[in-house]
């Protein structure tokens, strides 16, 4: 035990540290925690990779008259599912966990602003999603002939679909984290919409236009369908638009729906976020 002398007369406290700065340091901490937690890495990071390898490995016949292989369609669409996994699933389960293990409680008992907590989460999710996309792209290129576009415009599309998709799905993930009653039930509660949406959004089943129309309508309501379509528009030739519901890539509509989800998701979070479990008083 060391003896340390602090003046017993307390001088006025300086200003608390800047919200952004605290957020940045939380982001670094969140990232460290994410990659150290093996379950999280396996669950949210590796799952889409494994699904891609399996699906594209099984369905690799060429689609008639296009020269495009089914595996290429899967590889492009799976990028969207990968992002949903590292945002929606990761935050949905991660925040439920934070609520249960006392992370959120501790934060509320310190001068850490809650905004900084969310900045930290968003930063974590951006980095992890970026890494996920890199892995999926590399795998798609090496194993499944995914064509990297040479056109800068396509990469621009890639950029905004990625960014809007990450933000929209992250906000949805924060919102759904309040639904499960405990961390234990969180992964089940969150996997259900995740898997379900993949079937109706043109990820696990393509071409999407062959789905029954109620399913297409459900899928079209959520961001995953538009992200998958956006990524297909980047990595597949325009001759593939005949497989889309509208017969075109619909970039304008894609942007509109994704932006709407960013705004709506934020409102949903603000309305529904809970700091504690019902058991915590």
């Amino acid at each position: 035990m060391t003896t340390q002398t602090t003046p017993s007369v307390r001088q006025a406290r300086p200003q608390p540290p800047n919200v952004i700065r605290v957020g940045l340091s939380r982001g670094a901490l969140e990232l460290r925690q994410f990659f150290r937690e093996r379950d999280a890495v396996v669950f949210t990071f590796s799952l889409p990779v494994v699904m891609l390898v399996l699906l594209a490995g099984i369905f690799n016949d060429t689609i008639p008259d296009t020269g495009v292989k089914a595996s290429q369609v899967f590889a492009a669409s799976m990028i969207a599912a990968g992002i949903m996994s590292t945002t929606f699933v990761s935050l949905g389960t991660g925040i439920a966990q934070d609520r249960e293990d006392g992370t959120l409680k501790r934060l509320r008992g310190t001068p850490t602003p809650m905004t900084s907590y969310f900045i930290g989460k968003v930063l974590m999710v951006l980095v992890v999603s970026f890494a996920e996309v890199i892995v999926l792209l590399a795998l798609g290129k090496v194993m499944f002939d995914l064509q990297m576009p040479s056109d800068a415009g396509k990469w621009l599309t890639f950029g905004w679909v990625f960014l809007l998709g990450v933000i929209g799905c992250a906000l949805l993930g924060i919102a759904i984290s309040s639904v499960p009653r405990s961390a234990k039930s969180a992964s089940a509660v969150i996997m259900l919409p995740f898997i379900g949406l993949q079937f109706v959004s043109g990820v696990l089943f393509n071409p999407i236009k062959e789905l029954p129309s109620p399913m297409v309508e459900i899928g079209s309501f959520f961001p995953l369908k538009w992200m998958a379509q956006g990524f297909r528009s980047v990595f597949l030739p325009d001759s593939m638009t005949f497989q889309e519901v509208a017969g075109s890539w619909e970039p304008g509509r894609t942007a509109l729906v994704l932006v709407a989800w960013c705004v709506g998701g934020l409102v949903l979070c603000l309305l529904t976020f809970r700091w504690k479990n019902s058991r915590q008083g």
């Binding site: 406290r13 925690q33 934070d98 501790r106 008992g109």
Partner: peptide, 19 residues
Amino acid sequence: DWRSRIGIVSQTATDASEL
């Protein structure tokens, strides 16, 4: 400001286990 003037040791905490 108030929260920077108090310190809390709760009865149960299991957070930050990976750090």
